[in-house]
Structures are given as structure tokens and as C-alpha cells.
Nucleic acid binder design. Sequence first.
DNA 1: AATGAATGAGAGTTCATTCAT
DNA 2: GATGAATGAACTCTCATTCAT
Lengths: 191, 191, 191, 191
Amino acid sequence: MMQRTVPEGRPANGGRKVAARNREALVAAAREIYAEQGLDAPLSAIARRAGVGQGVLYRHFPERADMATAVLEENVRQVEQAAEAVPLDGVLGVLTWHLTESAAFIGLLHADGAGGRSHAYARVLSGRVERALRRRLPDGHRLAGGDDLMLAIAMVSGAVTGADRRERERRAATAWRLLGVEVGPVRPFEG
Amino acid sequence: MMQRTVPEGRPANGGRKVAARNREALVAAAREIYAEQGLDAPLSAIARRAGVGQGVLYRHFPERADMATAVLEENVRQVEQAAEAVPLDGVLGVLTWHLTESAAFIGLLHADGAGGRSHAYARVLSGRVERALRRRLPDGHRLAGGDDLMLAIAMVSGAVTGADRRERERRAATAWRLLGVEVGPVRPFEG
Amino acid sequence: MMQRTVPEGRPANGGRKVAARNREALVAAAREIYAEQGLDAPLSAIARRAGVGQGVLYRHFPERADMATAVLEENVRQVEQAAEAVPLDGVLGVLTWHLTESAAFIGLLHADGAGGRSHAYARVLSGRVERALRRRLPDGHRLAGGDDLMLAIAMVSGAVTGADRRERERRAATAWRLLGVEVGPVRPFEG
Amino acid sequence: MMQRTVPEGRPANGGRKVAARNREALVAAAREIYAEQGLDAPLSAIARRAGVGQGVLYRHFPERADMATAVLEENVRQVEQAAEAVPLDGVLGVLTWHLTESAAFIGLLHADGAGGRSHAYARVLSGRVERALRRRLPDGHRLAGGDDLMLAIAMVSGAVTGADRRERERRAATAWRLLGVEVGPVRPFEG
DNA sequence: AATGAATGAGAGTTCATTCAT
DNA sequence: GATGAATGAACTCTCATTCAT
């Protein structure tokens, strides 16, 4: 049988299927790179890690923040799913896991906005986190009033920033304790 | 290759007297720029704001972090002075003022960075803040144990980041309340 | 801080086809600039002469020495080709031509520098020159022993540096005479 | 007895004696720094090593090359003194010692001149070396004709550049051997 | 649609040189 | 005369973003 040769110099164009796969690969790569290098990591590093060209990255995420937002989006979705399934302390455990693992979570919820599309979207995501938690929040809970809930999250986030992975988890635990809040096991949500 | 400089029409060289003035101008400029743009602001912006050449900045602050450390140092000194004069809630008020005013405060105390001279110094400053507060901390205070004290500060800092000035102050108050800690008036220390 | 680029009125992006052409242009420009200004010439001068942006230079030659090595590589190839075709005195003529034309030649073969990738490669090239010459070197030739051969080349190079073009050629001739070695016509190798 | 205090902020002004001492210190420092870092070493390093301000350096050596020339001048004087006292092979030994020790020697004799005062002076020094050697050169010596003598020196210089100290000495010996010239012990001239 | 090279604006850093004190 | 700070141009290197193929 003859060997079919791939025409040289013409990169494969996989069509729609590949496009979706690329998007996922980019988000996954971004999650890793952000964790390793922080949110300021060069976009080229993400594209490289994802195994795609820079152009693809721009096609899927035209603004720099879109990339980070996409990672955050996934995190938020997990928190929402957890809120469907487990009581408050469990949800907080999942949330805490994301706080300690994912640079995107902290960095973006914190982002002092110049505004812009993705800043607005970060606020949307922030609202989704709040709603997800609040449905599990019993009346009269310590954090039930005003924006105490989101503030507490920001505080835990503040407690963990700047430390290495192991230390982050320890600090998160202490921080919640100082807030007088019970937190379940710190781990990702698995349906 | 050697550097070839064109020495035409050079502005006056202020001489030795201006050295101290320049240093102060740089620190003041850095405080402003950090507040506006964050700790990653370009050094050139600081030099420009201070009205000096880039070389002057490097003479006074050979490493990037030295600049931020100098700002931090001033903040810490005020906290220490407050701790000499007023009781805990007052000191926390001064501390909180710095947390809400100065981007350099926590970013630096917290950085678990690569090490290096100024990282070590940041730890020294961190220790000084802790000692200053602890001497005013009654036994059995909520934050008396372990590193609860510094962690609480980091938490308030986390609560505060990303908001505008007015909002920052409100959030700081709420954050301390969530921690169950009484805080005096939020203001700079004036001997 | 992130890099903010102003993308106004950007010149055309030549696309992938120009890559090879750019590389060649850079090597050619480097050859000229090195000859004019020495191996320490600013890389920006090379990029400018080649008519490309600085980034292109770095893409093709990530380390400073890579650029010089590329020039050297071409020189060495010519010597090797000459060694395939003509007897010793002819090869030495070609070699001498490169010594008198190209600043990159000895500066690089000689650098006992810190090591690093391109230093290693320089040694490879040095070995290739030596082998190319040695295959044409009759037993018992004056330069047959030890590293006499490469040392002699370094000596001629030393004789030649610092003079203008015409003078260089004269000195090279004298230098070889002092070494008691017969050299053919000094000229580039043309297949 | 009262302690006499040195008036602060007024650097001692030692008068003429100190000026001479400073000049010597600078030349000595330059010799060291050049040996360590090459002729492109920052002038500030030389001033620092000499323990004087940058201004003093410029007072004594207004042009960059003046500094290097001063070092070279001393080298040349030693060769001249040797030529008064010992036969050719001894003088060549002293010369070789300088070639292997002193970056200034090689670099400057080689300097492809833009011209300028110190380039001219380098030629003067070059002439002095030649005359010093020639008076010891028997008629009919290998290097007696034309500029063979200086060319041979340049060749040895070329042989040694780029190697580390120990290697330089070995190469110098081989180089002189290839030139068929007998050389005495390689060492500085001590009256 | 994907690729990956090109572009060029900065950011960081280093020094030669001047000059008030 | 000496000191050493100031100046700022020049150089290296990095990326965000575009775009021919």
C-alpha cells in the first residue's frame, strides 16, 4: 500500500471538532501556566503548552482577560455544581480548593477593573458564586448579612496569596477558623 | 561594546545635596505610582514622577524590590510609633489606614518570593509589625495564637484589594468585624 | 506589568515565506557589521541593516553568540569545500581570505569563554576547520604536530587584526612567510 | 586630650602628594581590572578598586584610552629597561610575560585606530618597543627585516588571546617556537 | 481555521561623563 | 583637588498582537 504523505507546509485544518478541542486544550494549559507563573504569564507559553499556534489563542480569546475568565468560569461552575449537591461546608471546601489551587480565581475576583467586557463578566461570575453559596446558607449564619459572604471569600483569598501550595492550604484553614466558619474537606468537586 | 553617550545640553547636575531629596522624591513617587498602578508598575514611571533620571533610581534602589521595601519601611515605622503611644485598637486603626492606602503593604509583607536580599528584609519588616502589635495584644486575645495576627492582617488586606478608596475603608471595617476585632479610628499616625 | 503595545499603522507582516530570507539577510548584515564594528557591535545595528525588527533577530538567534556563530559557520563551510577540491596551499588561501575579511572568524574560534551552547558549537567548528586542513597536510609538515595548526591560524589572525583591508592582506602574507608556510592565492572559494 | 574630629562631609584634600599617589593607584587598579574583565571594563570599577572617586579618574585620564595607555606605558618601559640589561632572548621573555599578563598590551597595540590622541600615542609606544628590541637584534636574525619584528609580536599576541592564564603561557611558547625564535624565561623585569 | 513568523514598543539595566559641593 | 551623585542615552531582551500563507 502506498503511504499517504501529509502535504508539507499546509497545517492540518481539523474543522469544527478540532476548534472545540483546541479551546479546551487552551483552557487547560492556561490553568497550568497560571498556577505555575501567575496571571501575568506570557500568552505564548499558554499556546505552546496547549500545542497550538498563537493565532488560535486569539481566535478563541480575543482579549487577554478572556483567557483567564474562561478558567475562572470553569471554577465557578464547579462551585455551582457542588452547591446543587452538598451542604454549605462542602461547598466551601470546594471553593477553598479553587482558592488555593487556581491563580485565576483569586486574581480575577480581585481584579480592580479598568472595566472592559471581561471585568463585567468577572462580576457576573462573582454573583454566581454568591448565589450558589447563599442557597446553602442557613438564615442567621455568621456570613448571612450584606456582602459578608463575598468579603469572607476575599479575606481567605488574601490569606493564601503569596504562599506556596502546601502553606496555602494551611492558611486557608486558619483563615476560615478565624472567621468562625466550618469548612468541609478541601477538594475539587467530582460530580 | 562600550557605551557612547552624547553629552550635549545636559541639564544641571544638582550635586550632592539633592541626593537625599531625590531619594525622598522617589519614595513618594513610588507610593503614588504603586497606589495607582500596583507593585508591577514600570520603574521608569516612578523615576519620571519623581523628576529624576533612571540612573538615580538605580543608585538608590539597585534591586526592584528595594524601592517597594522603602515605601513599606515607612509604613511599618508608623505602625511601630503608634504601638508606642496608643492601645491595640488604635494601632490597628493606623495599620488599617496603611492597608487601605498603600498597595505596597501586603503585597510585600506577603511575598513568599524567590528569596534575595529584599525578601529577607520584608520578613524583618513583617516581624517588626508583628512585634509592634503583639506588645499591645492582651493575653487571650482572639488573635493571640500562632500566626493568627499576621494572617488576619493579610485577610483584611485581601478584603480591601480591588476596590476604590471609599469602598476599601468600608470593607476593612466589615472585615475586622467578621474577625471579631475592635478597631480604632482609621487614620495615619501623627506623633 | 504586562506589556502594552500600540499596534497602530503596523507595516506588513511578510508571512512565513520571508522567514528564510530574513535569516539570510541577518547573517549577511551581521557579516558586514562585524567587519565594520567588531564582534561587540550592537545587535540592533544588525537588525536595522538587515531591515528587520529586533524580534526577528531574537527568533532566529536567541543568544548573542548564535548570530556570530552563524556567520562563522558559513566561513567554515567554505574552507571545508576548498579542502575537498584543492591542495593545502589553496585551502590556506581560502582560509586566509576569511581571516582578513571576517572579524567573526578567529574571535569566535578562539573564545575560551564561559561555555554555553554556542561556545560548544564554536569548538565543533574549530574542529571542522582543523580536520579540513589536516586532510591536506602532508606528514612531516611544519604544522603537523599538536595544535600547531590552529595556533598558526590564530597567529595569522593576530597579525592581521587592527589594520585596514589592504594592509591586512600584506600582513597575512608576511605572517605565513614567518611561519615558513606556503600559501596559495588569497580569495574566496568558488565551487 | 581632646579628640580632633574630621570635619564631616568635606573629603580630605591631600594636595599634590596625594594626586600622584592616586594616579599610581589608578594605574595599578586598571592593570588588575583589565586583567580580570578585559579592556572594556567599566571605568567605575577601576575607580572603586583604586579607592578614589570617578572624578579623579577623569582628572588624570580625560579620555578612556588614556587609562589603558598608561598601563601600556609601564609595560613598555619594562621592556625598554630589559633591553638595556639583557640580551634578546631575555627581552623577549619579558615582552612575552607582558603579552600573557596584560590585556592592555595586546588590546592597545592592536587597536584599530579611529585615530585620536591616544591611538597616536599607542603608535609611539609601539615604536619604542620596536627600537628596544632591535638594538638587541643581531644582523641576519629571522625577524630583522621590515616590520617582521612587530608582526611576530602581534602573532604571538594573537596566539594567546582568548585563553586562560596558564594556557596563554603554553601557547606563547609554542608560538615563538613556530616562529623559530629562542625566548628566555617568561617573567617580569626586575631591575 | 490553523500556523507561526514578523513587528516594534517598552521595560530593565548599565555606564560614560559632568559638576555641585 | 577630591568626592560621588545625577544624567540620560544606548543596549538587550520580551511579548502582545497581526497577518501572509
